[in-house]
Structure formats: C-alpha cells, structure tokens
C-alpha cells in the first residue's frame, strides 16, 4: 500500500468510505479490504485489558459481555453510530481514522485512556487515541500506517464510564455535541480519578483536565457538577453549522458532561 502511487484507501466497515466515494469527495485508485487479515475481526482479552481488532463491527462489541461490563460507556458510544444496519459494518478504528470531530466512539475512548495500535513501515507502536486525530479529516498517521487495534485497560474496582451525545433525532443522527466521562472511586465513593472528553465542540475531540479536576475529591454534589459544566463550556470552541450554533453546542456540551458524569458515577458505585 505504501508503494501505491495513486490514492489508496483502507476499507474496514465501509460506512464512511463508500459514502465519500459516492459523494465524489474521494476517487480512490486502490482500496484495500483489511477484514481478511487474520485476527483483525477479533476482540481479545489480554493481560492488560482488551484488544479490539480494527475490523470488529460495533455490533460485536455489545455481544462481548466482559467488554460491555468493563467499559459500558465505550460500548454504548460505539453502538450509537448509525442504525442496526450500520452497526453490522462500522468499526471503532474506522470511526477514529475518519477523523470527524463528531465521531461518537472517540470521546468515550479518550475518556477511557485507550490506545491505538499502529503498524507501519516504522514498525509497531501504541498511540494515545487523543493523539491520532489532528483536525477534521486529518490524522497523525503516516503513509503506510495502519491502525490495527484499539487497546483498553483493565478496570480497577469501583470504576465506571459513560457517553452521552445530543442529537435532534433519537437515532440515525450525528452528535451535535457529546461527552465521555470515565471515573474511578475511592473510599466513601469519593471520585479518585476522572477523565472527561468532549466531542463536536472543537476541531478534534478534546480532553478537558479542568473538568476532570472539578470531579476529583467530590461525590458529584451539585456544586461539583456546575464546575464540571463550566469547565466543559470553557473548553469548547465549536463552529456554527447545519447541526447547531456555537451557543447551543457550548451550553449543551456542559449538560451532556453533567449527565454522563452522573451515569458514570452510578455505574462506578454499582448502581445501574
């Protein structure tokens, strides 16, 4: 592939690639179907957690009980992409490499501190998910690089994650804004560790450390949630487009973050 002179594209689920071909946004000279690479359609439990192959359709994630109970937020996020029809094809790696700021699985993966396993001419390396996308439609991957898997860590006890997005329709929609939150609790159910990531409010998914700090040391009292929302709003630099205004995206990103934090907290406490 690295040797192809023309424009080469990788085909995983095809739910973005074929749409872009159809709209004449791209005109590939070479399409490489990665689904037949051995192991690429597998979810593996590893010593350090989970490894999800680049060809795994999102519908499969929910069927993996261990994964769904360890990372319910990540699985929910991936399963919000499109309809059942799309779910049967689309992949998290495709969702990541398509590099849309509104990608549903990415804020959840960033909150989960997931890593992308990249294989390329330079060998094999692990890249934090938040470092893969550099702007709308742009990634840090070099020609010949392939993301072959996503790795998620093992969960410490009393951990939970959640992802929420805002869409005008209940289904079949693109996030107007979204938030992924991952929490680990300590003694007395006080938040020990937190990561908060927002989608569709900046050129890339943004990790918001200040929002995470607003939660650490709290039991998500109202005051903490208000600080979280304020930190999220401050981290937004969205565009106004057909899907939403700057004001709307900014304000509702805070709302999504608050609601996702409560869900993650309840999950961490074992409350479903």
């Amino acid at each position: 592939m690295a040797g192809e002179k023309g424009k080469a594209y990788l085909l995983a689920g095809g739910t973005d690639l074929l749409v872009r071909m159809r709209g004449d946004f791209i005109d590939p000279d070479l399409i490489v179907d990665i689904k037949r690479i051995p192991g690429i359609q597998e979810i593996r439990k590893t010593a350090s957690g989970f490894s999800i192959g680049a060809g795994v359709p999102c519908a499969m994630l929910g069927r993996d009980k261990a994964l769904a109970s360890a990372w319910p937020g990540v699985v929910e996020a991936a399963q919000l992409i499109g309809s059942d029809q799309i779910q049967g094809r689309c992949t998290m790696v495709g969702n990541l490499c398509n590099a849309s700021p509104a990608a549903d699985s990415v804020p959840a993966l960033v909150a989960a501190k997931a890593k992308a396993v990249v294989v390329g001419p330079g060998g094999r390396r692990r890249v934090p998910v938040e470092d893969v996308v550099t702007g709308p439609g742009r990634t840090s991957l070099k020609k010949g690089d392939i993301v072959v898997a996503i790795e998620l860590q093992k969960r410490p006890p009393k951990s939970g994650d959640a992802y929420l997005r805002f869409t005008p329709r209940t289904e079949m929609d693109i996030a107007v804004c979204s938030a992924g939150v991952s929490l680990t609790l300590g003694a007395g159910n006080v938040v020990k560790q937190a990561r908060v990531a927002l989608g569709a409010v900046a050129p890339t998914v943004v990790l918001v450390p200040k929002a995470a700090r607003a939660l650490v040391g709290t039991r998500l009292e109202d005051d903490a949630l208000m600080k979280l929302a304020a930190a999220c709003e401050a981290a937004c630099s969205p565009i106004a487009d057909k899907r939403g205004t700057v004001e709307f995206r900014t304000e509702v990103a805070g709302v999504m973050a608050r609601r996702a934090a409560v869900m993650a907290y309840d999950r961490a406490r074992g409350k479903r």
Binding site: L11, G13, G14, T15, V19, D33, P57, A59, G88, R89
Partner: peptide, 16 residues
C-alpha cells in the same frame, strides 16, 4: 442480510 448480519447493501462493495 450478509452472513445473517443486517447491513445496507449500498455500503458493501460487490467485491467484498
């Protein structure tokens, strides 16, 4: 249905 999995046939290449 493609191997029993519901898909949109407009998003699957014939060659696949």
């Amino acid at each position: 249905l493609l191997d029993g999995q519901l898909v949109c046939s407009c998003l699957v290449l014939g060659a696949e």
